[in-house]
Design a protein around this nucleic acid. Structure first.
Lengths: 208, 208
DNA sequence: AAAATGAATGAATAGTCATTCATTTTCTGG
DNA sequence: CCAGAAAATGAATGACTATTCATTCATTTT
């Protein structure tokens, strides 16, 4: 965990590494205790550092939490873009790959989802959280809508609306994440993926 | 707001009314401030009562929050059952009515959803919340699965799985709620309902 | 009307936690 | 190796808040 810090002998790099380390500790704490009862003491202990360390590197708890959310959002964004780039060539393949991404263990694991829901749960209290979630999500929705449009054009599907489909797909994964959070015992990654594929098959029968 | 209390002529009724009043104040506070920064002082002030009142009626903050979640869950359950009963006669009608319920303003409004997400966000920290959510949800899922089975049998649909459809439908509404929470400005109840109907149409084309 | 009961109050308490800062440790350039 | 700078520490501070409880208030019973 401190590998990065250990390999750096340069101060600004070390500073960056500490921030990273603290953000990771924050994620771990929130996933264990929830946002409401994660204290700066918890985070410092999880990182193996001293009480005052968070304020030294992040000024305030608020700021730490904001940066943590941004980190998660950037992490997802980069996975999303990489997936989009590597998959294909057709729109149908790309769309499926994106849906699969959302259910991959690295994205859809109980710990990480607990953190996302923690932030979502505070959206009403922290407009900054809402703003950030909104901005990132908007981008994904647009991509999914365009892919759907392409598929609709390719297949000459009638009577269906790309916006609706994009809405359903993004809602679907968010909803599946909730099940994973609420009923981890019964949660079945494979079944969830089958549900998503079933949906794709029913709207785009010529493609899936 | 104190109408119930005002009509009391016996003490136990008044006691029940106070609990109710405090639970409603809690919901209001959580929807405004989020779970993390709702204090007992806030709740008391929102209810127009004194500092110590919550502990008098609920023993502890934990207990108040648990009872609040139970209240919300019971409220939804009763709407669900009433909807199931009044709609019909066919399974397809019942299913649609249940989906419509989830998007009705009384169920799907920003304030109430903020409270649900607040509780979901704390699930990792509070196993009691998870347990409660789990128990209630399981019942709804079963109903939806059975309705889907009926529809599948009626329509002699091939190659589709009632469990998958039930998963998709419940995930779908939860995901749509998240959009309503995160992007209330762009949230369009009618569009959301169209998305759900679009899905039903694509899996059960003979029925919708 | 007096006494009794229980609801409600709100000030006091005890504990928690974010933040600060004086001090110590570690690093770097000369 | 040293002086100065940056990083890190952790005890102290002050704000906040759940909970308690002695007291007050309102209603019911005798």
């Amino acid at each position: 965990m401190m590998a990065v810090a250990a390999t750096k002998s340069n101060r600004t790099a070390s500073k960056e590494a500490r921030r990273q380390q603290l953000i990771e500790a924050t994620i771990k704490c929130i996933s264990k205790r929830g946002i409401g009862s994660t204290t700066l003491g918890d985070v410092a202990k999880e990182a193996g550092l001293s009480q005052g360390i968070v304020n030294l590197h992040f000024e305030s708890k608020d700021n730490l939490f904001n940066e943590t959310l941004r980190y998660l959002a950037e992490e997802y964004k980069s996975l999303f873009e990489k997936t989009l780039e590597k998959s294909g060539p057709g729109a149908a393949d790309k769309l499926l790959a994106l849906m699969e991404l959302d259910l991959k263990p690295s994205v859809c694991d109980q710990k990480k989802i607990a953190v996302w829901f923690g932030f979502w749960g505070e959206v009403k209290a922290m407009p900054a959280y809402r703003k950030m979630c909104n901005e990132y999500d908007r981008g994904y929705d647009r991509v999914i809508e365009r892919l759907s449009e392409e598929i609709i054009a390719e297949g000459k599907y009638d009577n269906i609306n790309a916006k609706n489909i994009a809405d359903v797909l993004s809602s679907l994964t968010n909803g599946l994440w909730l099940s994973c959070l609420i009923s981890p015992k019964n949660w079945d990654r494979h079944a969830a993926l089958e549900s998503v594929k079933g949906y794709l098959k029913s709207v785009f029968p010529k493609h899936y």
